[in-house]
């Protein structure tokens, strides 16, 4: 899991190892507690319905955390995450397998690497997109 990527081996087009998570309502409650985001659309079904939502929805920031984990697992202990952005394009719901994907899109001379990130739901729809810039450990 750690130290998988280093600057000498990474090339444009390389995929990042994907990561799949199926969120439960219990995990949404756990995340609400850990993050302090207690907006009721994430754990109160009736409240979520009253806001016109199909039911409770996954915190965008939890999807952000999954995408970040994919990147930090891939880059290993010596890597540094320099920046990361995510856009939530659609909502996700508990019980649906969410899969994080990534692909190297730029390898620069200074050892920094840019990756595109995206997350698909169980139907294969991309609900979140983003990118990350990392500095990998020197070539070995």
């Amino acid at each position: 899991m750690m130290g998988r990527a280093n600057a000498g081996k990474v090339t444009v087009g390389d995929p990042l190892p994907s990561l799949t998570r199926t969120v439960t309502t219990r995990q949404l409650v756990q995340y609400a507690g850990a993050s302090g985001d207690f907006y009721e659309i994430h754990y109160d079904h009736e409240f979520a319905k009253s806001k016109g939502l199909p039911g409770v929805i996954v915190h965008g920031a939890l999807k952000n955390a999954f995408l970040a984990k994919m990147v930090t697992d891939w880059m290993g202990a010596e890597g540094r995450l320099l920046s990361m952005s995510v856009r939530y394009r659609d909502m996700d719901v508990p019980g649906d397998p969410l899969t994080c994907h990534g692909k190297v899109v730029d390898v620069r001379a200074d050892g920094t690497v840019r990756c595109e990130l995206w997350l698909t739901n169980g139907k294969g729809v991309t609900t979140t997109t983003g990118d990350a810039v990392v500095r990998l450990s020197p070539a070995r």
Partner: peptide, 28 residues
Amino acid sequence: RSIAPAIPPLPDGDRLPNVLDGGSAWTY
């Protein structure tokens, strides 16, 4: 995210009461 300061209420925000997170851009 767990130590984010409270986002202040938007003046006249009751015109647009529903709020969704659109995304974040981080630098570290």
